[in-house]
Design a binder for these strands. Structure first.
Length: 271
DNA sequence: AAGCGTTACAACCGCAAAAGG
DNA sequence: ACCTTTTGCGGTTGTAACGCT
Protein backbone atom coordinates (compact mmCIF):
# COMPACT_ATOMS: atom_id res chain seq x y z
CA UNK A 1 0.00 0.00 0.00
CA UNK A 2 1.43 3.38 -0.99
CA UNK A 3 0.00 6.88 -1.16
CA UNK A 4 0.16 9.31 -4.09
CA UNK A 5 3.73 10.26 -3.16
CA UNK A 6 4.89 6.66 -3.23
CA UNK A 7 5.16 6.40 0.55
CA UNK A 8 4.22 2.97 1.84
CA UNK A 9 1.74 2.58 4.69
CA UNK A 10 0.40 -0.28 6.71
CA UNK A 11 2.11 -3.34 8.13
CA UNK A 12 5.87 -3.60 7.80
CA UNK A 13 7.42 -6.52 5.93
CA UNK A 14 10.42 -8.50 7.19
CA UNK A 15 12.48 -7.01 4.40
CA UNK A 16 11.64 -3.47 5.47
CA UNK A 17 12.48 -4.34 9.07
CA UNK A 18 15.90 -5.61 7.99
CA UNK A 19 16.62 -2.46 6.02
CA UNK A 20 15.63 -0.25 8.92
CA UNK A 21 17.57 -2.32 11.43
CA UNK A 22 20.73 -2.16 9.35
CA UNK A 23 20.34 1.57 8.88
CA UNK A 24 20.00 2.22 12.61
CA UNK A 25 22.94 -0.08 13.34
CA UNK A 26 25.05 1.89 10.90
CA UNK A 27 23.97 5.46 11.60
CA UNK A 28 22.38 5.25 15.05
CA UNK A 29 19.09 6.60 16.32
CA UNK A 30 19.22 10.14 15.02
CA UNK A 31 18.24 12.30 12.05
CA UNK A 32 15.03 10.43 11.42
CA UNK A 33 14.27 12.58 8.40
CA UNK A 34 17.29 10.99 6.70
CA UNK A 35 16.45 7.43 7.64
CA UNK A 36 14.08 6.57 4.77
CA UNK A 37 16.70 7.65 2.23
CA UNK A 38 19.60 6.01 4.04
CA UNK A 39 17.69 2.78 4.53
CA UNK A 40 16.23 2.74 1.06
CA UNK A 41 12.72 2.59 2.46
CA UNK A 42 9.59 4.04 0.92
CA UNK A 43 8.30 5.02 4.33
CA UNK A 44 7.90 8.39 6.01
CA UNK A 45 10.35 9.24 8.79
CA UNK A 46 7.59 9.01 11.40
CA UNK A 47 6.76 5.49 10.39
CA UNK A 48 10.44 4.50 10.54
CA UNK A 49 10.94 6.04 13.96
CA UNK A 50 7.82 4.41 15.36
CA UNK A 51 8.70 1.03 13.93
CA UNK A 52 12.12 1.18 15.54
CA UNK A 53 11.01 2.57 18.91
CA UNK A 54 8.00 0.31 19.31
CA UNK A 55 9.10 -2.89 17.66
CA UNK A 56 12.62 -3.30 16.32
CA UNK A 57 14.66 -1.80 19.12
CA UNK A 58 16.49 -4.75 20.75
CA UNK A 59 16.06 -3.21 24.22
CA UNK A 60 12.31 -3.66 24.09
CA UNK A 61 10.96 -6.00 26.70
CA UNK A 62 8.29 -8.34 25.35
CA UNK A 63 5.68 -10.41 27.08
CA UNK A 64 3.04 -9.76 29.67
CA UNK A 65 3.30 -6.99 32.20
CA UNK A 66 4.38 -8.24 35.61
CA UNK A 67 2.29 -7.46 38.66
CA UNK A 68 4.80 -4.91 39.90
CA UNK A 69 4.81 -3.20 36.52
CA UNK A 70 1.02 -2.98 36.61
CA UNK A 71 1.15 -1.51 40.09
CA UNK A 72 3.70 1.00 38.93
CA UNK A 73 1.60 1.98 35.93
CA UNK A 74 -1.46 2.49 38.11
CA UNK A 75 0.42 4.64 40.57
CA UNK A 76 2.24 6.66 37.95
CA UNK A 77 -0.91 7.18 35.95
CA UNK A 78 -2.60 8.43 39.06
CA UNK A 79 0.29 10.80 39.53
CA UNK A 80 0.94 11.89 35.94
CA UNK A 81 -2.20 11.20 33.93
CA UNK A 82 -1.74 10.10 30.32
CA UNK A 83 1.88 11.17 30.15
CA UNK A 84 3.06 7.87 28.80
CA UNK A 85 6.55 9.03 27.95
CA UNK A 86 7.13 9.91 31.60
CA UNK A 87 5.53 6.72 32.83
CA UNK A 88 7.72 4.46 30.66
CA UNK A 89 10.74 6.27 32.02
CA UNK A 90 10.16 4.12 35.09
CA UNK A 91 9.51 0.93 33.15
CA UNK A 92 12.78 -0.14 31.51
CA UNK A 93 12.29 -1.98 28.23
CA UNK A 94 8.66 -1.00 27.84
CA UNK A 95 7.49 1.42 25.19
CA UNK A 96 5.03 4.24 25.58
CA UNK A 97 2.85 2.61 22.96
CA UNK A 98 2.84 -0.70 24.83
CA UNK A 99 1.92 0.96 28.10
CA UNK A 100 -0.74 3.07 26.43
CA UNK A 101 -2.25 0.02 24.73
CA UNK A 102 -2.09 -1.94 27.95
CA UNK A 103 -3.80 0.86 29.79
CA UNK A 104 -6.51 1.25 27.18
CA UNK A 105 -7.26 -2.45 26.85
CA UNK A 106 -6.72 -3.74 30.39
CA UNK A 107 -6.61 -1.04 33.02
CA UNK A 108 -8.87 1.77 31.90
CA UNK A 109 -12.03 -0.28 32.24
CA UNK A 110 -11.06 -1.41 35.72
CA UNK A 111 -10.20 2.08 36.82
CA UNK A 112 -13.35 3.48 35.23
CA UNK A 113 -15.33 0.87 37.07
CA UNK A 114 -13.63 1.82 40.32
CA UNK A 115 -14.36 5.46 39.71
CA UNK A 116 -17.95 4.66 38.92
CA UNK A 117 -18.39 2.60 42.07
CA UNK A 118 -16.75 5.23 44.21
CA UNK A 119 -18.83 7.88 42.56
CA UNK A 120 -22.03 6.07 43.35
CA UNK A 121 -20.96 5.64 46.95
CA UNK A 122 -19.86 9.20 47.38
CA UNK A 123 -22.80 10.69 45.52
CA UNK A 124 -25.08 9.69 48.32
CA UNK A 125 -23.06 11.51 50.91
CA UNK A 126 -21.71 14.52 49.09
CA UNK A 127 -21.59 16.41 45.88
CA UNK A 128 -19.57 14.78 43.15
CA UNK A 129 -16.24 16.50 42.80
CA UNK A 130 -14.73 17.24 39.45
CA UNK A 131 -11.98 14.71 38.54
CA UNK A 132 -8.70 16.52 38.83
CA UNK A 133 -5.81 15.24 36.76
CA UNK A 134 -2.62 16.60 38.25
CA UNK A 135 -0.20 17.68 35.58
CA UNK A 136 3.44 18.38 36.24
CA UNK A 137 4.38 21.99 36.52
CA UNK A 138 7.64 23.85 36.91
CA UNK A 139 8.69 24.24 40.52
CA UNK A 140 11.08 26.49 42.33
CA UNK A 141 13.20 26.04 45.39
CA UNK A 142 13.21 28.35 48.34
CA UNK A 143 16.57 30.02 48.72
CA UNK A 144 17.08 28.43 52.10
CA UNK A 145 15.58 25.07 51.18
CA UNK A 146 16.87 22.41 53.56
CA UNK A 147 16.66 19.85 50.84
CA UNK A 148 18.80 21.89 48.47
CA UNK A 149 21.34 22.45 51.20
CA UNK A 150 21.47 18.73 51.65
CA UNK A 151 22.27 18.41 47.93
CA UNK A 152 24.85 21.19 48.00
CA UNK A 153 22.72 23.34 45.74
CA UNK A 154 20.96 26.66 45.95
CA UNK A 155 17.94 27.93 44.11
CA UNK A 156 20.15 30.54 42.47
CA UNK A 157 21.86 28.00 40.27
CA UNK A 158 18.65 26.29 39.21
CA UNK A 159 16.81 29.04 37.32
CA UNK A 160 13.44 27.39 37.68
CA UNK A 161 9.87 28.52 37.38
CA UNK A 162 7.99 30.16 40.19
CA UNK A 163 5.54 27.61 41.43
CA UNK A 164 5.02 25.87 44.68
CA UNK A 165 3.06 22.64 44.63
CA UNK A 166 0.21 23.83 42.53
CA UNK A 167 -0.12 27.32 43.88
CA UNK A 168 2.01 30.19 42.70
CA UNK A 169 4.35 31.53 45.32
CA UNK A 170 4.92 35.19 45.92
CA UNK A 171 7.97 36.95 47.33
CA UNK A 172 6.10 37.39 50.58
CA UNK A 173 5.98 33.62 50.93
CA UNK A 174 9.60 33.59 51.89
CA UNK A 175 8.84 35.74 54.92
CA UNK A 176 6.27 33.39 56.32
CA UNK A 177 8.23 30.35 57.32
CA UNK A 178 5.97 29.41 60.16
CA UNK A 179 2.93 29.48 57.94
CA UNK A 180 4.86 27.66 55.25
CA UNK A 181 5.87 24.95 57.65
CA UNK A 182 2.25 24.33 58.46
CA UNK A 183 1.41 24.26 54.79
CA UNK A 184 4.21 21.84 54.16
CA UNK A 185 2.89 19.50 56.76
CA UNK A 186 -0.45 19.63 55.02
CA UNK A 187 1.31 18.95 51.73
CA UNK A 188 3.01 15.96 53.26
CA UNK A 189 -0.36 14.50 54.17
CA UNK A 190 -1.63 15.41 50.74
CA UNK A 191 1.22 13.60 49.02
CA UNK A 192 0.75 10.55 51.13
CA UNK A 193 -2.94 10.29 50.47
CA UNK A 194 -2.30 11.07 46.82
CA UNK A 195 0.25 8.34 46.28
CA UNK A 196 -0.93 5.76 48.74
CA UNK A 197 -4.65 6.45 48.83
CA UNK A 198 -6.96 3.53 49.46
CA UNK A 199 -9.12 4.08 46.43
CA UNK A 200 -7.53 1.42 44.25
CA UNK A 201 -6.87 -1.03 47.04
CA UNK A 202 -10.49 -0.96 47.99
CA UNK A 203 -11.28 -2.25 44.54
CA UNK A 204 -8.59 -4.89 44.61
CA UNK A 205 -6.63 -3.55 41.69
CA UNK A 206 -3.57 -2.62 43.62
CA UNK A 207 -3.98 -5.03 46.47
CA UNK A 208 -0.55 -6.57 46.09
CA UNK A 209 1.11 -3.36 47.14
CA UNK A 210 2.07 -2.62 50.66
CA UNK A 211 2.30 0.68 52.40
CA UNK A 212 5.81 2.12 52.42
CA UNK A 213 5.85 2.11 56.20
CA UNK A 214 5.23 -1.61 56.14
CA UNK A 215 7.88 -2.82 53.75
CA UNK A 216 9.90 -0.55 51.57
CA UNK A 217 9.81 3.08 50.64
CA UNK A 218 8.59 4.25 47.29
CA UNK A 219 12.13 5.17 46.40
CA UNK A 220 13.27 1.68 47.26
CA UNK A 221 10.56 0.13 45.15
CA UNK A 222 11.89 2.04 42.17
CA UNK A 223 15.46 1.27 42.97
CA UNK A 224 14.69 -2.43 43.12
CA UNK A 225 12.57 -2.60 40.01
CA UNK A 226 14.58 -0.37 37.71
CA UNK A 227 18.00 -1.73 36.87
CA UNK A 228 18.52 0.87 34.16
CA UNK A 229 18.82 4.32 35.62
CA UNK A 230 16.98 6.89 33.59
CA UNK A 231 16.39 10.54 34.15
CA UNK A 232 13.29 12.28 32.95
CA UNK A 233 13.56 15.97 32.39
CA UNK A 234 10.48 17.72 31.09
CA UNK A 235 9.43 15.41 28.28
CA UNK A 236 12.80 13.87 27.64
CA UNK A 237 14.23 10.66 28.88
CA UNK A 238 17.98 10.51 29.28
CA UNK A 239 19.36 7.02 29.47
CA UNK A 240 22.11 6.13 31.89
CA UNK A 241 25.47 7.07 30.50
CA UNK A 242 24.15 9.89 28.36
CA UNK A 243 25.02 13.43 29.26
CA UNK A 244 22.50 15.54 31.07
CA UNK A 245 22.53 19.33 30.89
CA UNK A 246 23.45 20.70 34.29
CA UNK A 247 20.54 23.09 34.36
CA UNK A 248 18.05 20.31 33.72
CA UNK A 249 16.66 19.33 37.04
CA UNK A 250 15.87 15.64 36.88
CA UNK A 251 12.45 14.24 37.65
CA UNK A 252 12.72 10.73 38.86
CA UNK A 253 15.29 9.99 41.51
CA UNK A 254 14.96 13.43 42.98
CA UNK A 255 11.19 13.27 42.97
CA UNK A 256 11.13 10.02 44.82
CA UNK A 257 13.89 11.25 47.03
CA UNK A 258 11.72 14.19 47.88
CA UNK A 259 8.71 12.01 48.47
CA UNK A 260 10.79 9.85 50.70
CA UNK A 261 12.10 12.81 52.62
CA UNK A 262 8.66 14.27 53.10
CA UNK A 263 8.61 13.69 56.81
CA UNK A 264 11.74 15.69 57.55
CA UNK A 265 11.73 18.95 55.60
CA UNK A 266 9.54 20.99 53.40
CA UNK A 267 10.23 20.13 49.82
CA UNK A 268 10.16 21.88 46.54
CA UNK A 269 10.57 20.06 43.33
CA UNK A 270 10.75 20.47 39.62
CA UNK A 271 10.19 18.22 36.72
C1' DA B 1 -17.53 -24.40 9.27
C1' DA B 2 -19.35 -19.77 8.97
C1' DG B 3 -20.59 -15.53 10.87
C1' DC B 4 -20.19 -12.19 14.23
C1' DG B 5 -18.44 -9.59 18.15
C1' DT B 6 -14.49 -8.61 21.02
C1' DT B 7 -9.74 -7.97 22.15
C1' DA B 8 -4.96 -6.71 21.52
C1' DC B 9 -1.69 -4.20 19.45
C1' DA B 10 0.68 -2.13 15.41
C1' DA B 11 0.46 1.88 12.92
C1' DC B 12 -1.23 6.46 11.59
C1' DC B 13 -2.42 11.32 12.33
C1' DG B 14 -2.43 15.91 14.16
C1' DC B 15 -0.38 18.91 17.03
C1' DA B 16 2.91 21.29 20.12
C1' DA B 17 7.52 21.94 21.38
C1' DA B 18 12.25 22.09 20.29
C1' DA B 19 15.91 22.91 17.23
C1' DG B 20 18.03 25.13 13.48
C1' DG B 21 18.79 28.84 10.18
C1' DA C 1 13.04 37.93 16.79
C1' DC C 2 11.06 35.35 13.44
C1' DC C 3 10.21 31.56 10.36
C1' DT C 4 10.86 26.79 8.92
C1' DT C 5 11.99 22.19 9.82
C1' DT C 6 12.33 18.32 12.77
C1' DT C 7 11.12 15.67 16.65
C1' DG C 8 8.29 13.51 19.95
C1' DC C 9 3.91 12.82 22.15
C1' DG C 10 -0.80 11.27 22.85
C1' DG C 11 -5.23 10.14 20.73
C1' DT C 12 -7.23 7.34 17.49
C1' DT C 13 -7.87 3.91 13.92
C1' DG C 14 -7.21 -0.46 11.37
C1' DT C 15 -6.84 -5.12 11.43
C1' DA C 16 -5.37 -9.80 12.71
C1' DA C 17 -6.35 -13.13 16.10
C1' DC C 18 -9.40 -15.14 19.09
C1' DG C 19 -13.69 -16.83 21.19
C1' DC C 20 -18.45 -17.63 21.13
C1' DT C 21 -22.81 -18.98 19.04
Amino acid sequence: MADSLGVRKGAWTGEEDDLLRKCIEKYGEAKWHQVPLRAGLHRCRKSCRLRWLNYLNPNIKRGEFAADEVDLILRLHKLLGNRWSLIVGRLPGRTANDVKNFWNTHLRKKVDKCCKNNKEMKAKAEKVEKINIIKPQPRTFAKNSQWLKGKGMTSNNLQLGDYNLGKQSTPSDHHHHHQQQQENETESVWWESFLFGDELDQQGISSSLSRPEEESTTANIFAEKSPVVTKVTENRVIEAGQSCPTDDFAFDAELWDLLNAKKTNHYYYYY
